[in-house]
Simulated scan of single mutants.
Amino acid sequence: MDFAAEGLLEGIEDAQARADRIVLLERLLADGIPLEELKRAAAEDRLVLLQVERMLGTEQYTAREVAERVGLPLELVLKMRQELGLPRPDPDDRVLTDSDVEAAARLKLFHAAGLSEEGILEVARVLGEGLARVAATLRTLVRDAFLQPGIGEQELSDRYAAASATLGPQLGVVMQQVLNMHLRDQLRTDVVGRAELARGGVLGAVPMSIAFADLVGFTKLGERVPAEELGAIARRLGELAGEATAARPPVRLVKTIGDAAMLVSPDPDALLETSLELVAAAEEEGDEFPRLRAGVATGPVLGRAGDWYGSPVNIASRITGIARPGSVVAAGATREAIGDDAHWRWSSLPNRRLRGVDHPVPLYRVRPADPTPSG
């Protein structure tokens, strides 16, 4: 085939680059990729990605065909794709792959099992948000590793294909493991909560104070900034939390969970100090860094594998979700544990009913007490 006559070498003047392009085109043709698709990919400057795109699935079905094939309403198939954060195609556009058919088949199994459509779509929405960030971060990692001066199109295409063949299956295994670990932790929280209700306490529980600090507006920020920038913000939160807890033992950083950090301490006074310092440290990062808010609760919790479970964990997390940006809000039990310490200024807030808590929770905004004037 005369690739130059077909316009597939247009704009490539360097002899080595033209030779690389020809080798790549010959390979793609031999793999069965039609000429028109090659032309479209060349015009969109994505010839080096065609191997990967083929590995990830050939666009061969319409949404209508997928719906009929698996026995689901067409609108549900389209909604599922939309909630996953993917483009919503015209029902008769031939843009879906075998992966879309498999996803729709699994959706039908969930639907047939009696799970609500609303709940399934909510899971899809959360899954789509998280995996879009994973894919964008992975894309940046691979791009930075492979886009080096002097690499020809043929080699770059091979590198992308090899990375996809290796990373895809491995990432799937890791994601399954991480999902299992998170499910285990959340189920433990549910079990501990039921045990507290049944017994009025949990065997082996110890009194602790728990704090969560989260970045305000982090999810919406993800819609406006690149994934690598979002990842840098989350990493910086982890660094700030680590620095704050290292400076004030016995406060300990338990974990960071995307846009939030979980802290624990047997000393509620020290935990309040650390929470306020962490919120202030976020303010000092400048206008481009999201503001923090924190919630603190105190009570008996159960320690397992470095994590903590029980009502105070749930209460602290819920309080964080309703705290105003730049503030630290504590439950009444935390104030009772500290007592009338002149070190703090407590501003009473309306009692709140928090999800998962069977009684209204007294709340207080906490600030350092005003310094006593000298002389």
Rank of each mutant, 00 (worst) to 15 (best):
V192T: 05
V192K: 01
G193H: 11
R194L: 15
A198W: 13
R199I: 01
G200E: 00
G200P: 00
G200V: 01
L203K: 13
G204R: 00
A205W: 05
V206M: 07
S209R: 09
F212R: 08
L215F: 03
G217T: 08
G217A: 10
F218C: 05
T219Q: 07
T219Y: 07
E223S: 14
E223Q: 14
R224C: 08
E228Q: 12
E228N: 09
A232D: 11
A232V: 04
I233D: 00
A234I: 00
R235L: 06
R235K: 09
G238N: 02
A241R: 04
E243Y: 05
E243V: 09
E243M: 06
A244W: 04
T245W: 05
T245Q: 05
R248Q: 11
P249N: 09
P250K: 05
V251I: 02
R252K: 13
L253G: 01
V254A: 02
D259Q: 09
A260I: 12
A260P: 13
A260Y: 13
A261Y: 14
A261T: 14
A261P: 13
L263I: 04
V264E: 05
P266L: 01
P268Q: 11
D269R: 15
A270N: 10
L271F: 13
T274Q: 04
T274I: 05
S275I: 08
